Every structure is written in C-alpha cells, then in structure tokens.
Amino acid sequence: MSVALAPSETAALSAEGQDLVVRDAREFGAYARTGGWAFALKVARSVRPGGQPAGDSPKVSAKEFGELAGCSAERVLRYCKAWDLAADDGLVPQFEVLVPGEDIELPDSDVWHAYYSSRSGATSVRGTAITAAAEAEGIRPTKALEVAENPTALRAAILADPSTAQAARAALLDRIKEDPALQTELARDIARTDGLKKAVASESRAADRIGYVRQIVDNGQIRTAAGQTVDAPAELRAEAERHLSLIDELEEGEEAGEWASEAYDTVKDLVAQAVEADPELRVQERRTKFYSSLQKATRVFEELTLDDADDIYEDDMVQRLEDLQKALDTCIAALRKAAAAH
C-alpha cells in the first residue's frame, strides 16, 4: 500500500535528492582531477608517520585507520608510501604539517601511478627495481609488477606467442650484458642442449666467415693461408664488397649461413689466385708456410720425453724416427744446394 505525500514533502525530498546528486558530482569531479591523491590526502592528514608517538595529536596509526576504514593496514601504508615519495619530490606537503580535515591543492591524477602501486611487492628492493625499469620503458609499473608476480603466465605467453618470445629474447640479451651469472647459466644451458649447441656453432662459423669478408672491405687487406697480411687487389675487394652487400640486405630472420659460406669460399679462392699471380708473394707464402711447419715440428720434439723409454719402446717408433731422419737429411741437403746456387 502506497502512502501519498503532501506537495511540500515531495518538494523537500526532491531538493534533498538534488543536493545529494550535486555532492556526488562534485566529489566525482574532484576524484577525476586528482585520482588516488584524494584518498591519499585522507590518509596523510589522519595517519601518524611510522614510529611517531601519539602525543596530543588526534592522528591515528595506520593499523587503527585501517580498522576504521574496514581495510588492511598494508593498504593504508601503500597510500602513505605514495604520499611520502611525492612529498620528497615536492609535489605535496609532508605528513607533519597536515592536520585532520585539511584540504589542499592536489597533483593531477595522471601522476598518481608514478608514486602508487597496489602491490606490496613494489616497496621491496626487487619491486623498486621493476618499477624503475617499467618507468624507463614508458609503461605503468603495475603492469610490470603483475607480470613479475606471475611467472607462470609469462611462461605461457612466451610459449604460445612468437612476438612475446621475441620480446623476452631481446630483454634477455640486454640483461646478460650486465649479468655475468646469467651469462654463465645461459652458456651452460646451451652447451647441454645438443640442438642449441649445434646452432651456436653454426652461427659462430657464419659470423667468422662474414668477419673475414668484412675486414677485406673495411681494411682493404687480405690474410693469406700462411697468415701474411697484404693489400687486397681492387677486383678482389670489389667482389668481397658485392658479397657483403648481399648479406647485409638479408631480411631479419633470414638464414645467413649459406650466403656466408659462398662469400667466404669465393673470397678465399680469389686470395689464392692473387697469391699465385704474384711471384714474389708466392715465394714468400711458401717460405712462411715452411717456417710455420718447422716451428710446429720443433715444438713437438722439444716436448718429447724419453725418461720412460723402457716402458714405451716399440720397434715401429724407431722405424718412424729413422724414416724421419732420412727425410730431414734430404731436406737439409736440398736447402744447402739452393743456398749454394744463390
């Protein structure tokens, strides 16, 4: 059964309703401009900073304020932390100068998330580092903290989404530059995974071959098979530059292995031809190779020890040494004959 209201009563209710609407609109407008700062102010002007005695102040502890508000003390403390950081930056007054009920000009809402995080982990050393990294990347810290708190979700995204995997790969490459421990762990993982180990070896070989071609283009010099460094003929350098340009024009993700092998083999053949075409260089190359082999053989014999000859002796060893001695005699005779001819 409905009760009819007098016109005067209806008008009073209507006016009261309008007042409530106006109040809500104004509070909404204030929050739209200031965001979380409006709530942070209520905390800052009513809560004593940690460790400060109550004294004659009407302010209460974060725990008491949380109980009055029907929320946790941790949530209250996060608002305290945000206000404290902003006060250090000069955006808002310090806790000590505020009194309960006091209103002040608040910062814009768009800077609130630079100081506040809804996650308690944001105040830890780890959380602070994640927050700083997020700000450097131009994203909200809360997003990065959410990902960090749910590594299983991150793993699922990496496994399912190629673009996420690429972002993770790029991040790891940036991270290992300043993290020796992570470098070691990744290197160990690669060494223990046959597929990765082969892929790394293949990429390393391709990089070395491209480097060989690139240094000819950049320095204008070639390194011969015997290890000599000489100026590269113009046509050889031009061919190296042509191959290098083809490699540099490959799309990201295209395999460079075959291109690197072709460039390397072509340039190596041209180097060999350049050596053969220059009589003086050809002689120097043979002389360098001979000395290199002689030095290696000398080192091998210097490292031999015959202290345990009784235990290691075999007839075949003596035969090989006698054959080697004959070869040495022949070599020495040839060199002396060549010296006499000059």
Rank of each mutant, 00 (worst) to 15 (best):
D329P: 02
L41C: 04
L250G: 08
V217S: 06
L335V: 10
A232S: 06
A144V: 12
R214T: 14
A40V: 08
S109C: 04
Q166M: 02
E249I: 08
T10Q: 15
N150E: 06
D84G: 11
Q166N: 09
A167P: 01
A87E: 07
G211V: 05
A134D: 07
T305G: 07
K63I: 07
G220E: 13
A25L: 13
D103M: 14
L244E: 14
A277M: 02
W83N: 08
P233F: 06
A114E: 15
E96L: 05
L186V: 14
E16M: 00
H342V: 00
D311W: 12
A199F: 02
D189N: 01
T288V: 10
T266G: 09
Q221P: 04
I104D: 08
R223H: 06
S261K: 12
L304T: 03
V125T: 12
I158R: 03
A12R: 10
S46D: 11
W37C: 05
A153D: 03
E185F: 04
E96R: 03
S245F: 03
S2N: 12
D110T: 15
A170H: 14
L154I: 03
T123R: 04
V99A: 07
D194S: 15
H243P: 14
L20K: 00
K81G: 02
T123S: 03
A73F: 00
M1C: 01
C71S: 10
L281H: 03
G90R: 02
L13K: 07
L106I: 05
P100Q: 01
L250P: 09
D308L: 12
T193V: 00
D174E: 13
